[in-house]
Write a protein that binds this DNA or RNA. Structure first.
Lengths: 397, 397
DNA sequence: TGTAGTAGGTCAAAGGTCCT
DNA sequence: GAGGACCTTTGACCTACTAC
């Protein structure tokens, strides 16, 4: 820590641009409490202020001495990361894994500091063995698998963009309308189409036989709906937020719907919020759910199994060696499956009672009923098929 | 952290910025502002101190262990200064603030000792905030984790012994009889009672509130049945082996039953055989399934969640760092849950069709129907309850 | 051949631990 | 609870290797 580093350094840089915005926001919000009006506080000589992102440690906001292990950081965080990785340290947080990591407090919780190192982009592979050098610098594509975090994150981002065009979300949570049964069905339909869009952005999916593509899309679509609504609802306690900007309160007028909403909040939102799940982790989980090798009628189950294997190894990496975290995330899949089934049952009931008019897409994907060619039509999968009989090339954008 | 300040900093006139004005330091402050004795303004020159400079504590003349907080000092004075500053101690001198501070008498007046620390050049700014705990030394008993592999293996072994007494198994697989619906129900009942025996052998289970014990036993009993039959059937390809020595072939006379058997073989036995699952891993998985924190109506869900966490960390350890193995094992839980549900549905159907006479224990544990006191009666959980109203001690052997 | 960038290493002086 | 002998961690500063 150099002398010039003061609290005022915090003013100078837009941290959110250098860090994954999904996790530390809370901490940074806290930090920003003081410095919003910089001009009025002290007119610092420009020379003392870090000019670029590169001069600030993305872990603790101390002055950075360069890029280390993949993240711009100070010597302290650099040394801390190296020691932690070399000695294979397993720290535990004495609090609730939400400790603030800044220049002053960085030594107060090693668990949270190490987590922040990983999240800022430090990679343990970059720490070398004692007394030896890595020969090839640019060896970035580590691993056997073809799936990569970046592909998954891009697929996610692309789909979100796509969704933003379709249905813009309002800002004020209190202004949102409570969903009726019809709104829920609309949202589900919309989200299922987004799932197809998402899948199309994964090259490994596109290389599968067309029948397997359809099978996978149908197999766990309900879980994907629940997963999506869970992610969207992470900030809330009493409501879940649908993709079409409607909300479902836990104590709403539709008993059956609210029951599912309550389970989503209790069994999924709550634990995931406590874990403070990252975007990468979410992307991996979605992929793990998607590539379901037990899906009935699969032509290439071993390929799907291999893809799921890659995805779970990616998730393991994404959890940054935090003791128990990988397991806790995978264990979310059980309640996810359970809640998804309850949702499907509710939908079925609603249809029987005549409360909901179930679209043929919902019928095929969620209720598992064959409606001739629905999925193929909606997704454009059938077109190339007409062209050549044994089509198995990537089709889509 | 670079300590740019030198001993000479004490000469600076702005005492208020370096000294806490609230208590003892204020007096020292005053001493400097109105110097009664001029020596006290500047740190004692090393030459005036007894013996050689670096090896002697400038406060008490004990052997120094280095420079601490700006003054060459012994560990005692170092620790004393840190504690005093951290805790903001305000000492007072019982005499006339002229106490001798040497190795023998340094503990006789804390006021004079602290004053001498400051005068020797120690600066309170050099004392940092509290850090994270190290706990590398004594605390290997990792306080939280009570669950251990050996307890789980013993519970397993004990239950198997118990089972061997009840129903001995024949050796020749070809000699075994094909199970009818009644045999299946008998086997399930027997296995459920064994599940209770197993649970009783886990002290952490016995320490739970009695209602939670009952809830956990009911919650995932179907999965435990499937898990048991999976393990028993690991050597086979075309049949599953029940606990009462009957078998179910995948192509048997009972279509509904065989369908479940086929899924068990395909989705559970096959992948677990490929992984060559060990006893320890199996024991952990069983425990993970058992301690289900989302189980409805739990009094102590956090305790159950902690136990499951311990179990999954144990499983992680049991996989011996083999890349991807832990994830593959946890991902078995999805088909396990799915197959278990299908089994329950089949059972329900069989009961409705009058094919099976479902015992009240099965009814309560598998079908989730409340049959007054069945579980409590069968498992002996009610006896102590009758004895005292608010019973919550471990009951069983 | 130099220089920027980022690995690796060192050790004084912080920290914490735990028995007395 | 405080003292202090003893051990761990931190981080400022340094060297070394590689790519341009």
């Amino acid at each position: 820590m150099k002398l010039s580093g003061t609290v005022l350094d915090l003013n100078s840089t837009d941290y959110s641009s250098t860090l994954d915005p999904s996790y530390t926001m809370l901490e940074f919000d806290n930090l920003r409490v003081f410095p919003i009006d910089t001009e009025s506080v002290i007119p610092d000589p420009p020379s003392l202020l870090p000019q670029t992102n590169g001069t600030v440690c993305s872990i603790c906001a101390d002055r950075a001495t360069g890029k280390h292990y993949g993240a711009s950081s100070c010597d302290g965080c650099k040394g801390f990361f190296r020691r932690s990785v070399r000695k294979n340290h397993a720290y535990t947080c004495r609090f609730s894994r939400q400790c603030v990591v800044d220049k002053d407090k960085r030594n107060q919780c090693r668990y949270c500091r190490l987590r922040k190192c990983f999240r800022a982009g430090m990679r343990k592979e970059a720490v070398q063995n004692e007394r030896d050098r890595i020969s090839s610098r640019r060896g970035e594509g580590h691993g056997l698998g073809t799936l990569s975090i970046s592909v998954l994150l891009q697929a996610e981002a692309g789909t979100h963009q796509f969704a933003a065009l379709t249905s813009p979300m309002s800002c004020d949570i209190n202004a949102k309308k409570i969903a009726g049964v019809g709104d829920v069905c609309d949202s589900m339909k919309q989200q299922l189409l987004l799932l197809v869009e998402w899948a199309k952005r994964i090259p490994e999916f596109c290389s599968l036989p067309v029948d397997d593509r359809v099978s996978l899309l149908r197999a766990h679509s309900a879980e994907h709906l629940i997963l999506g609504v869970t992610r969207r609802s992470l900030p809330y306690n009493e409501i879940i937020l649908l993709g079409n900007d409607f909300v479902i309160p836990v104590s709403g007028p539709e008993i059956e719907i609210s029951r599912v909403a309550a389970r989503i909040l209790e069994e999924l939102v709550k634990p995931l919020r406590e874990l403070d799940i990252t975007d990468s982790e979410f992307a991996c989980i979605k992929t793990i759910v998607f590539f379901a090798p037990d899906c009935p009628g699969l032509e290439a189950p071993q390929t799907v199994r291999r893809l799921r294997f890659q995805a779970q190894v990616l998730l393991d990496q994404a959890t940054c060696e935090q003791r128990g975290r990988f397991g806790e995330l995978l264990l979310i899949l059980s309640p996810l499956q359970s809640v998804a089934w309850q949702m499907v049952e509710s939908l079925q009931l609603a249809r029987i009672l005549g409360e909901a008019s179930v679209d043929s897409l919902l019928q095929e994907m969620l209720l598992g009923e064959r409606v001739a060619g629905t999925l193929e039509q909606r997704t454009g999968f059938d077109q190339p098929r007409r062209l050549h009989k044994s089509f198995d090339q990537p089709i889509l954008v």
